[in-house]
């Protein structure tokens, strides 16, 4: 039994240590906002925050999160996270929307570490998040907008 804290709620989960956090969140806890895209740390759709760091939950064993704090898109409610979501809505970023949980989680980390990112900073921080619809132009615009708010 592993104890996890997700979005402020504690859960005991009886799963193998090596099961990736992604599948514990989605298939065990029913938190489906975090997405499966590649299972190979390539696309960023699965990004969550573990003790405030952005991690690829598809390749991170659940044992590594024991007694630590996970925040998913469903629980993203700090000021920066909210400003990112508001900017995403203002710019109307999503198309299919499937990658956007991961994009928002990545953008939130960027803005926490760098309140006024340049285009290059955005490239560097967001390069790991694929959007097949190609909403990158709006992702960039929304990050700049969130930085101003």
């Amino acid at each position: 039994m592993i104890t996890l804290k997700v979005n402020g709620v504690s859960y005991g989960v009886d799963v193998p240590d090596e099961m990736p956090i992604l599948w514990v969140l989605r298939d065990v806890l029913g938190l489906t906002g975090t997405k499966f895209g590649c299972a190979a740390a390539q696309c960023g759709a699965c990004m969550v925050h573990l003790d405030g760091d952005g991690i690829r939950s598809c390749v991170t064993p659940v044992a590594r999160a024991a007694d630590r704090e996970i925040v998913t898109i469903e629980g993203l409610n700090d000021a920066i996270g909210r400003s990112v979501q508001a900017a995403w809505e203002e710019v109307d970023v999503p198309q299919c929307g499937y990658c956007q949980s991961g994009q928002i989680m990545a953008a939130t980390i960027l803005l926490r570490e760098n309140p006024a990112p340049t285009d290059d900073d955005i490239n560097h921080a967001m390069s790991g998040n694929i959007c097949r619809c190609g909403t990158y132009k709006r992702i960039r615009a929304a990050i700049h907008l969130a930085a101003k708010t």
Binding site: G33, E74, L76, W88, E89, V93, P94, G97, Q100
Partner: peptide, 10 residues
């Protein structure tokens, strides 16, 4: 559909 695609509810 934008709000629900930004908060994990979609």
């Amino acid at each position: 559909d934008t709000p629900d695609k930004c908060n994990g509810k979609a």
